[in-house]
Nucleic acid binder design. Structure first.
Length: 330
DNA sequence: AAGTGAAGCAACCGCCGAACC
DNA sequence: GGGTTCGGCGGTTGCTTCACT
């Protein structure tokens, strides 16, 4: 024969929020007798509750060493780092944060941190940059509407974000290149349809002030800055590969190592030139509203759609092949 | 001021490995 | 050794508060 049941189903036990009187009974009993059998505790303490309910109330609320109130920056940082390693192992995460309970951390994650990471374009499950199309759509709005960038960045310290995910800025820039590809696809092929969840102005007016702001933010330390530079080197590589792909089709493309540029269209569908400068870790829109593309480091290109599908396969790098992209976007 | 939806969070539910008989 | 329960954990619910119209 095994153990006797925790809670007697024949007795109507109280559920729901605890009253002050119940709290006092529980605390008083544990102070006097210490922690023992949760099953025996309710009856001994004069509580009409399940032992499980008593344990939960004690561990999550009444324990004297519990720290209540807002999580500070260090705690947030710790939770995110631990979550990236441990996943949803809340009790193990809580073990690293004295005074915090697994339930509290779980709630805080679900209500605050998860949203912050999503806003930053970081997948809260994988802790890697998001490359899904919903994020692309959101990104388009962020990049084309700089005033919205301020509150977003203030709500989640960009310095922390970059420290946690050094390549995020690179991913943002990379996604901007993707924007451009989608735009070219939609412009070149009137029969092609963009994903339904993508705004029609996708790729228009690629105002990169947001990224410039990131790099001019004084509180980004040298270490992050150097990570950021590496990030832009990656963008440079992506862009180079894109240009190489275009060049293979005898397009005249700029492949300069020091000054990566690409073209897009502004809100009037006029060509506009964007340059990425890796040395300075800045992204600038150097020329816009011109009727023709000219300038020291860039030449207008006219890619075929197949070139662009190749580039999508390469840039997104999530297993979606050229043919799948073609199928999806046509 | 009232209605409504969103956000926050305490508490419950159900599962699972460990412990017990 | 096997059946049963406990304790702990993660997921989910639902109540309360807040913000907005």
């Amino acid at each position: 024969m095994g153990r006797s049941p925790c809670c007697d189903d024949n007795i109507e036990l109280k559920k729901g929020p605890w009253t002050q009187e119940e709290d006092e009974k529980l605390v008083s009993y544990i102070k006097k007798h210490g922690l023992g059998s949760w099953r025996a505790l309710p009856k001994a303490a004069g509580l009409n509750r399940c032992g499980k309910s008593c344990r939960l109330r004690w561990t999550n609320y009444l324990r004297p060493d519990i720290k209540r109130g807002h999580f500070n920056e260090q705690e947030e940082d710790m939770i995110i780092k631990l979550h990236s390693v441990l996943g949803n192992k809340w009790s193990r995460i809580a073990a690293h944060l004295p005074g915090r309970t697994d339930n509290e951390i779980k709630n805080y994650w679900n209500t605050h941190l998860r949203k912050k990471l999503l806003q930053m374009g970081i997948d809260p499950v994988t802790h890697k940059p998001r490359t899904d199309l919903n994020f692309l759509a959101n990104l388009s709005q962020i990049l084309t509407n700089p005033p919205n960038l301020g509150p977003l960045m203030n709500s989640w310290d960009i310095n922390n974000a970059l420290r946690l995910q050094p390549n995020v800025a690179a991913e943002v820039a990379k996604l901007h290149v993707l924007q451009n590809i989608f735009q070219i696809l939609s412009t070149n092929n009137s029969s092609s349809s963009l994903p339904t969840n993508m705004p029609l102005n996708m790729g228009l007016n690629p105002n990169l002030n947001g990224l410039s702001n990131i790099n001019s933010t004084n509180n980004i330390d040298n270490g992050v800055f150097s990570s950021s530079s590496q990030g832009f080197c990656q963008v440079q590589n992506y862009t180079q590969e894109l240009y190489q792909s275009l060049d293979n089709n005898n397009n005249n493309c700029d492949k300069s190592l020091s000054n990566i540029s690409y073209e897009t269209l502004d809100e009037n569908r006029l060509p506009s030139l964007v340059t990425i400068s890796p040395e300075a870790s800045t992204v600038n829109q150097v020329e816009s509203n011109t009727n023709s593309i000219s300038g020291g480091s860039s030449t207008m290109f006219n890619p075929t759609t197949d070139d662009l599908f190749d580039s999508l396969e390469m840039l997104v790098d999530d297993g979606t092949t050229h043919d799948l992209w073609k199928q999806f976007l046509n």
